[in-house]
Design a protein around this nucleic acid. Structure first.
Lengths: 204, 204
DNA sequence: TGCACCGTTGCGGAAATCCACAATGGCACG
DNA sequence: CGTGCCATTGTGGATTTCCGCAACGGTGCA
């Protein structure tokens, strides 16, 4: 994976450069952006493994960028940086899913540790997501009829029942079933169930 | 369920009573405790649906009580209340799994809303946990041999293979398999897979 | 019109599963 | 020693699944 880059967005040149220097001096890959708009325009958000985001910026704020990323489906771990943060703001940010919230001035070592932790969970997430995408990709190749059959297979229904249910022959169900397994890359209904049950979006 | 009680722990009599009045006047069930120790001694944590916890208290602090609950396996949603909270403290509490972090003085309506939200997710959690416990309970009744067979059934192995693998006859595997289904309350390997795949502890 | 894909079905056989009935041996507990 | 639980196996049959081979009709696109 090449998504272990640390993206830093801050409109204060001095802080931005200091952050860049901090991470680079320790062997990490850091990319710097002077505004949320610049980051978005860059179109390289996909390479981001962890995002350090100044909350207060001219133009689009850190919080707004965060919301924007969420809507776009990017769930990169975000660490907010703030000079004048208060408790309610921090709480709101974390409850919305921010990974961390750090006040300036920050402790160098601590910030690096947190960023690395963020990278870590990003890797965990992205591997899970890759698997989920893989499954979705395969699901997309199923015909609507196959989906109907699959649904019933997952409900534990026997081919006979499914056939009655759909008003077709057992043979037809068998064919669909075989194609489903083939397309989904599994070799039994059990594997299929595991694949799809694991894919379920996780709650809080 | 009778776990929609709001537990309030604060060593300041005035605040505690005010909180009790606040929730009760709106029709909610609130229980008051003047210290973490008293709450623990009461032995009624199981009835708790949501916990409002003052961070700074004589004796065991709110944070300590929170940790204690975590260790005991109680994961009631906790809302911390604090008079002199700072951002790092709030961030730490939330990252450890607190549900919310509110500064005093608080806005009555907002606090109630948050407590109700906490109750809500507690209900979601507890129904999930009940299901998980149910499954664990059933798993506990499986013999070690049955577990070995189940493991292989979930791996999608055919009875024939499992038999070879364990050095027994197919017939034996069939019997184990039947008992597994019976004990687990399912009627097919698919249902079993769903039961156990869903049970998996969810990550962040 | 020809090709590709989909849904459908039939035939027939191999393989696997499910099950009732029946039984043996080991082990632990009282 | 009896009772209960567990693992094990057998027989035999009903049911179900899995598959290759073959085919037909519809739809949509080039």
């Amino acid at each position: 994976m090449s998504t272990n880059q640390i993206f830093i967005v801050d409109d204060d040149d001095a802080i931005r450069d200091a952050l860049g220097w901090l991470f680079r001096s320790r062997g990490h890959v850091a990319r710097l952006w002077s505004s949320a708009e610049a980051l978005i325009a860059g179109g390289e958000i996909g390479r981001c493994g962890c995002l350090l985001l100044d909350i207060r910026m001219d133009g689009m704020s850190g919080l707004e960028l965060f919301e924007w990323l969420r809507e776009k489906g990017h769930d990169v771990p975000v660490i907010f940086l703030t000079g004048h943060g208060d408790v309610p703001m921090a709480v709101a940010a974390l409850k919305k899913g921010a990974f961390d919230f750090v006040e300036k001035p920050f402790n160098d070592n601590e910030l690096v540790d947190r960023a690395l932790a963020a990278l870590d969970i990003h890797h965990q997430r992205s591997s899970r997501q890759a698997a989920a995408r893989e499954v979705d990709e395969r699901l997309a190749h199923l015909t609507s009829r196959e989906l109907e059959v699959m649904e019933r297979v997952l409900a534990g229904q026997m081919n006979k029942v499914i056939a009655m249910d759909l008003g077709v022959t057992m043979r037809t169900v068998e064919v669909h079933r075989a194609r489903i397994f083939e397309k989904m890359g599994v070799r039994s209904a059990v594997e299929l169930a595991q694949l799809l049950t694991a894919r379920t979006p996780k709650p809080q």
